[in-house]
């Protein structure tokens, strides 16, 4: 089973890295890039288990809250396949 987790800065938090990339894109000639936000993507491969879909979601949510995201400044979202 596979899960994909995306961790991004909260919309209210400034992202200077994203701003720098946005400026670089426009100096490369890519016009019209209004905003860039940088995040992290985690691809998790999970062993098959007896857990229900809800149980797996719960586990992934805990992984995000306890380690993958710092919820002071970041939001997370995830998708589960198979």
């Amino acid at each position: 089973m596979k899960a994909t987790v995306i961790v991004e800065l909260k919309p209210s938090v400034l992202d200077p890295q994203g701003k720098a990339i946005q400026h670089s894109l426009s100096s490369l000639g890519f016009a019209g890039v209004e905003d860039v936000r940088v995040g992290k993507l985690f691809r998790l491969t999970l062993a098959e288990s007896e857990q229900t879909g809800e149980g797996i979601e719960n586990t992934i949510r805990q992984m995000c809250e306890r380690l993958l995201a710092n919820t002071v400044v970041e939001n997370f979202s995830y998708t589960i396949e198979e």
Partner: peptide, 8 residues
Amino acid sequence: ALMRNQHL
């Protein structure tokens, strides 16, 4: 939290 320095 401590984030990336403003000017990177």
